[in-house]
């Protein structure tokens, strides 16, 4: 069970299951909860229709069936794909959206809620050289080469949190925190002292509470979450097509957008011992498989 489900749901909070995890919103005005939840649900539905790799009717799947021909895409899908390609560029390909087929080959070929406990074939690499540079995006046209299946999961969830938080704050004029699994975005004014976030991966793992200033974000990536089969998890190393070696059990990063935070936390998991160079001075907390904790960039003790 995701840890978030164990938190109390007060008058200022709403939460519901989505995308194999939990969506949770907290607002500064409890009276705004229903309207805020409706806005976030609408944002989630729009993103799902645009880029789910589990829906035959999603825009992304249609683009994948075009066999390399240019396909017109909506502004939303263009933004989502653009964010994924930017993340690949910023991380030297450590976060690569072309791992979709490799994920399917490992058994992650449907909503994660349907995978838990399912028997899967031994890990195989479906095709040898997924490479984000083969994907071409202009403002309204996408070209996905034949044989490449895009998976925007690493960045789409984080960008959705950013978009949803901004939309709630703008439409309702309240402060809001949007949490989608490990991805947290905030917008509008924060409660006095900041947004309080429990940083903990699994029950029993080391934990701390940090306070986020208004307009900041926090993302965690984990090799202990979304696991199935024999030691399989959902963060693939694009260089091998297999789950990243668990040098880090959990990496949490704070930034001014959830997309940026998630890009860094995911890349840190993939890069393993090379994470330090990538993270630079970003506030980050890294947990080893032995549950030792490394804090960087002013992450509070």
């Amino acid at each position: 069970m995701p840890l978030v489900e164990t938190l109390p749901v007060g008058a200022d909070t709403a939460q519901w299951p989505v995308w194999g995890t939990t969506a949770r919103i907290v607002v500064t005005d409890p009276g705004a909860v229903p309207a805020a939840a409706a806005l976030v649900r609408a944002e989630l539905a729009a993103v799902d229709a645009a880029c789910s790799r589990f829906r035959e009717d999603s825009e992304l799947r249609r683009a994948g069936r075009a066999h390399g021909r240019p396909v017109p895409v909506s502004p939303l899908l263009a933004e989502l794909v653009g964010a994924a390609l930017d993340a690949a560029r910023q991380t030297g390909g450590a976060v690569d959206p072309t791992v979709g087929a490799a994920l399917c080959g490992l058994g992650y070929d449907r909503d994660f809620a349907a995978i838990t406990g399912r028997r899967v074939a031994p890990a195989v690499r479906v095709f040898p050289a997924p490479d984000w540079r083969a994907v071409t995006l202009t403002s309204d046209t996408l070209v996905v080469p034949d044989g490449i299946l895009l998976d925007l999961g690493a960045t789409a969830k984080a960008l959705t949190a950013d978009r949803a938080a901004a939309r709630v704050a703008e439409r309702l004029g309240v402060g809001v925190l949007v949490a989608l699994g490990g991805d947290i975005a905030t917008a509008g004014p924060a409660p006095e002292g900041g947004w309080r976030v429990l940083v903990q991966d699994r029950p029993g793992d080391p934990s701390c509470v940090v306070r986020l200033p208004a307009g900041t974000a926090l993302a965690s990536s984990s090799t202990a979450a979304r696991t199935w089969g024999r030691s399989l998890h959902h963060i693939l190393d694009p260089r091998t097509g297999r789950p990243a070696r668990p040098v880090w059990r959990t990496v949490s990063v704070a930034a001014f957008s959830c997309l940026h935070a998630n890009t860094l936390s995911t890349a840190a998991v993939v890069l393993g011992h090379g994470a330090a160079d990538l993270l630079g001075r970003a506030p980050a907390r890294l947990v080893t498989p032995a549950l030792d904790v490394l804090r960087r960039g002013g992450w509070p003790a």
Partner: peptide
């Protein structure tokens, strides 16, 4: 004794 309003675990 501070509690979280939300959790960032890995997901």
């Amino acid at each position: 004794g501070d509690s979280g309003q939300a959790t960032t675990g890995g997901s």
